[in-house]
Write a protein that binds this DNA or RNA. Structure first.
Lengths: 197, 197
DNA sequence: TCAGTTGTATACTCCGACGTCTAAAAATCT
DNA sequence: AGATTTTTAGACGTCGGAGTATACAACTGA
């Protein structure tokens, strides 16, 4: 008995490209570039490997396209401007709107040498932004550098942990994350531990 | 003219093995398992690739040995016991004593599928430890889960940021990191932002 | 001195994943 | 219906890095 004929949905070039990017984002978000084969991506997109090559030159090209799009979306909703009260809410909104892309960018792409050119500018920018703002409340010295390194990482990890927790209380999330950041700022100001209750 | 004959230092088996593990820890700590070739390891150890195979069966075997040793050292100094005031100081001491191994374990190995069996138990244990202790001060719910996820990550990242900052004030470091952790606990208790100064 | 060990140097095989190609099937458009 | 485009299915070529093999050189210790 022959299998029921597969539906085989056909899309126009641009749509198919987007659908491949969606699937590739999901696939790469699991284990990063090196540990994800094109077969994995093809399976996730429910396509043949050959199809991927009709839309992208190579595996690296596809990955760059994925990263570019996630990056563009991120900047689009965060504005990438100065730090203000909108910064953390915007980051939360961006993560909520594209969780796979968010995880991919910060958990994998940020540590992949070959593609650091696509992400390092964000890491540098957020570190410098943090440094500028912290310099007003933390005395210059190694603990200022420590906080400037740690706060961007903490912010991103706090957002990812919020995603992993099921995105509870979207309205409260930015305030809670900001409070966690404030904890690092306090810690960098003085080595006095909060009195035990 | 012939090159000056290389010194060619010779070591006994056990010593050479340790020296290879040291070099491999450094090499793998840079870009993880997949992105580090045996040539990189051999170069770091100033040996030929063939020598690596006289001490280890395969690349994966070598990597496991590296991870095992780093893991054992970590547990040896942290005790892996219940959480108390010694936990964070012990972690700081462990990181200080083996910075490459510390970074390798938490920045790379923790995300490598093939070797998660060697690291997942630590991630699980620290998450559960955090969860048990937090459950006494944070009401059950998604924000408890959020904090239990975030605090182990924050702690490790705070230690790495401290390493990156040049290990300043080793005596103060544990207190400052504990203060940062306290910030997350406060954030998880209530969504009230600290009053702006 | 001689045996055993530690090391170099280099060429080689093997394998998996990337990337290419072709022929034919099926959906869409006019 | 016929032309066009999308897609499949799978074989094939290619290449880098893991892993193997061999011959030889040099240090060490009894």
């Amino acid at each position: 008995m022959v299998d029921q004929a597969a539906p085989v949905r056909r899309l126009r070039r641009a749509e198919r490209r987007e659908q491949i990017l969606d699937a590739a984002t999901r696939a790469f978000a699991r284990h990063g570039f090196a540990d994800t084969g094109l077969d994995d991506v093809a399976a996730e997109a429910e396509l043949t490997r050959a199809m991927l090559y009709r839309h992208f030159e190579s595996k690296a090209d596809l990955y760059r396209a994925v990263l570019d799009r996630s990056c563009a979306r991120l900047i689009e909703t965060t504005g990438s401007g100065d730090y203000d009260d909108r910064a953390i809410p915007a980051l939360v909104e961006a993560a909520s709107g594209d969780p796979d892309g968010f995880r991919l960018l910060f958990r994998h792409a940020a540590r992949e040498r070959e593609f650091r050119d696509l992400t390092s500018f964000m890491a540098v920018a957020s570190r410098e932004l943090a440094h500028r703002n912290l310099a007003r409340v933390i005395p210059a010295g190694p603990w200022l550098e420590w906080a400037a390194d740690l706060i961007p990482v903490l912010t991103v990890e706090a957002v990812i942990a919020w995603l992993d927790a099921g995105q509870p209380d979207p309205g409260q999330a930015p305030e809670r994350i900001a409070a966690a950041v404030q904890g690092v700022i306090d810690a960098a100001r003085a080595p006095i531990r909060w009195p035990a209750e």
